[in-house]
Amino acid sequence: MSRTEIKIGGFGGQGVILTALIIGKAASLFEGRESTMTQSFGPEARGGACSAQIVVSDMKVRYPYVTVPNVLVVMSQEAYTRFEPQLDENGILLIEEDLVKSGPTRGKIRAFSIPATRFAEELGRKIVLNIVMLGFFTSVTKLVDADAVRKAIRDTVPKGTEELNLKAFEKGYEYGLNKLKEEKKKLG
């Protein structure tokens, strides 16, 4: 895999940037690959539109920006509307299903949905919705090794919240594995 482009979109405050940071860190620091993370800078106060991009590669990343994402994670309707048309037609689309009403998929795009916010609320803190999403991303895309992501979570989240965040990760991860099984059955 030479170069994979990932884009994550949502509201400011959902942890969009942190999710991207953990993915990049997992690849760069715990898998020994190369990654570059960039983010959109604008009036991204809580509630505004927010996006982050990561390029993961086995070789040095030269061009730093994402142009045609292979994976798109959307956690807001606006992010879906704005970024879905950019997604590669063989790409993977991950959707926060309670926050995004999605239309039919294009080309060979594989779409998977998760009620990440609801799961996070069940775990006791809505704030970990991004980590639920990260778990989902990890199992569905298999782009980054799950243990590397777990290490990156421990390395990144505030002290004292590691266990909660890892629980959130496992919740999303398991849900993703089940979604893959469902897909296999359907195709199978």
Binding site: L21, S28, L29, E34, T38, F41, V61
Partner: peptide
């Protein structure tokens, strides 16, 4: 420049 300043890498 802004790109180098705001891009995150190892």
């Amino acid at each position: 420049d802004e790109c180098v300043g705001h891009m995150t890498e190892k």
